[in-house]
Design a protein around this nucleic acid. Structure first.
Lengths: 206, 206
DNA sequence: TGAGCGATCTTTACACTGTCAAGATCGGGA
DNA sequence: TCCCGATCTTGACAGTGTAAAGATCGCTCA
């Protein structure tokens, strides 16, 4: 029989999830710099060091946070693309817009996902997989557009790279406020993404 | 009379420059995470805390490093654009390629320039100025292309943003090895930038 | 000239970080 | 039932940024 208040239990029960949720919350609200092993342990009302039984080190925790981020990014891109008319250009656009909007709505998380701590993701295969899956949504749009004769049939990998680069740069520069403070607002960011993806699509038409 | 070995002098003479050079060297070779107030002070053979008479805090030192980075980026873009035939598309391309090549050749420095520590550059006006100057080179290319009737006369700011976003995203994803390890090599990165800027230019033509 | 004053540098101290090492507690399978 | 491994705790250490206060210098002005 499990007593409701698990306050005094020596074993936590689901510490990993609790820690990860705390880490996500901290990153989202205060940024990666505020993320601390001792901090997340404190939120879970657990001694520091307890976290080390679930995450090898701080890098592993950061990687887990980023992995969640990539899952969310993939989901939002897929959703926004699905509920969209069957017009290649519109779908192409919506995928890119979803990318930028996600970044603007989760700037701190987005920065972690592409931060220097994880410059080499090869140490975290799950993270790599989640990132690849997100990229796959965009790559899929490119190939669908090619199959529908909407854009030219050059090396699809090259085209996917170009599309990804465009929205990624837009996202980064928006949240870094390089386009001014307005661009960090979802509406304005969406407008920028609309125009930018339109120009690129035009250049990729056959 | 100044004696050659200034080893024992209480006052250093040009500590700010020494510290900044040391910081740049550390960032370049070992990344921002290795940058330390005490470390740079050590390189200059000076007590820690001495640095605080030249940089308000670590953030100010990082900002100074980034500022140097933006100066270098601006210079390399301008140089590469100048020594280039008077063809709008070629000049447009070279500007973008210079951007990506700079990033790939100075990945750690580039990451500092656009890192989360400096997400709000308004606290460092000199840094903001250097960044604006670098962006100005690209914006100038856009306007020159418009004046030469090479690309359409839409809102030039919007077009500049799109161009910047494209090369910025390409640069970021290259150094993050999201396109694989080869893309972190200058030759391969240059090839990607060539193709990407070509596609965008095509979309921007009138 | 020289006295002092502000800029520059040092020393000391503190809170906070990640992580190693060793012990305490628990729960499930033999 | 007992014990062993997973889980959690306690304690310690080196390294970090930086506040506070003192030491040393060189330039200015009387």
């Amino acid at each position: 029989m499990t007593d409701g208040s698990r306050a005094k239990r020596y074993h936590h029960g689901d510490l990993r999830k609790t820690l990860l949720d705390a880490a996500l919350e901290i990153v989202r609200t205060d940024g990666a710099a505020a993320l601390t092993m001792r901090g997340v342990a404190g939120v879970a009302k657990v001694s520091h060091m307890a976290a080390y039984h679930h995450f090898a080190d701080k890098g592993a925790l950061v990687a887990a946070v980023a992995e969640e981020g990539f899952r969310g990014l993939r989901r939002e891109m897929a959703e926004r693309t699905e509920k969209c008319p069957d017009d290649p250009r519109a779908r192409f656009r919506e995928t890119g817009i979803a990318y930028v909007v996600f970044a603007v709505k989760n700037p701190n998380l987005f920065r972690v996902m592409f931060g220097p701590e994880l410059a080499d993701m090869s140490a975290y295969p799950d993270l790599q997989g989640a990132a690849d899956a997100a990229f796959g949504v965009m790559q899929g749009q490119v190939e669908q557009s090619q199959a529908g004769y909407a854009i030219k049939e050059d090396d699809s990998r090259q085209i996917g790279v170009t599309a990804w680069a465009l929205v990624h740069g837009l996202a980064m520069l928006c949240i870094d406020r390089q386009f001014g403070p307005e661009a960090a607002e979802p509406e304005q960011a969406e407008r920028l993404a609309y125009a930018a993806t339109g120009a690129l699509f035009r250049g990729l038409r056959r």
